[in-house]
């Protein structure tokens, strides 16, 4: 491990106006020079802007992959292994940014969450970490139980608790396990339903952007927030179930 004090981003903010390539003076593309191909210092940009994309949620993933490969060939540290220190720094910065952006945008859920984050919205802390954290600190965690699932969830939690007790006592209740597995299947179906529901909101969002309608945009946004919170809740349940079934 090493510490790294230099921060190329800072230096660049100052000459943001300057669009010339540092090496050949020609026009630079966002990350590399279109003329001589050299890596350029990073500029602050969100992941969509990094790929030159609008903040829309419907996205051609195959095209994104092609773009990712193309940019990797331009920006990867391997290409600058023998270059001077500064260029190696820029390449490291740019390629890490590229990888972070690609990883986020290629995944439908991460992409949606990231867009909502750009909109200033942080989702309810439904992560496993939040659960553990709450358990450890004794705080009460916010729960967003999808209303239509309230009953099922209640029952499943009881079953899981029973299964955990059985395990501790070294007992095995085959019918209980079958029951839990059936519940898990239901939850997985629910997750798939939510995914297709989500792509519907993507269309709403993208259309709102095209129509430049603030109201429609906020509507779509809030629906997605609600949906992702429900989805997170179910995913955590599935994780709990897997934990009980696997060990």
């Amino acid at each position: 491990m090493s510490s790294n004090f230099s921060n190329p981003t800072l230096a660049v903010v100052a000459d943001r106006e300057n669009d010339a390539c540092w090496s050949c003076g020609d026009m630079r593309a966002a990350q590399f020079c279109k003329s001589c191909g050299k890596v350029q210092p990073a500029r602050p940009a969100d992941f969509f802007a990094f790929f030159g994309l609008p903040k829309k949620l419907n996205l051609d993933v195959a095209k994104l992959e092609r773009e990712f490969y193309l940019l990797s060939r331009k920006l990867h540290p391997d290409v600058y292994a023998q270059a001077r220190e500064e260029e190696r720094e820029w390449s490291l910065e740019q390629s890490s940014r590229l990888n972070d952006a690609y990883r986020t945008l290629k995944d439908p859920i991460k992409r949606t969450q990231y867009l909502l984050h750009l909109e200033g919205i942080e989702l309810e802390e439904q992560s496993k970490n939040a659960t553990e954290k709450a358990r450890a600190t004794g705080e009460i965690k916010k729960q967003v139980v999808p209303p239509e699932l309230l009953e099922e969830v209640f029952e499943l939690n009881m079953q899981l608790e029973e299964a955990r007790m059985n395990k501790k006592a070294g007992e095995n209740d085959a019918s209980l396990v079958t029951e839990i597995q059936k519940q898990k299947q239901n939850l997985e179906i629910k997750l798939e339903e939510l995914s297709s529901e989500l792509s519907g909101y993507w269309n709403d969002w993208d259309a709102a952007l095209d129509a430049d309608s603030e109201t429609a945009r906020i509507q779509a946004r809030d629906k997605m927030v609600d949906l992702l919170n429900r989805r997170n809740y179910i995913r955590n349940l599935v994780r709990d179930v897997n934990e009980v079934l696997e060990s």
Binding site: M1, S2, S3, N4, F5, S6, N7, H76, P77, D78, L92, S95
Partner: peptide, 9 residues
């Protein structure tokens, strides 16, 4: 980094 080694700033 590309070596799998952490840098922090």
């Amino acid at each position: 980094d590309a070596n799998g080694i952490l840098q922090v700033s």
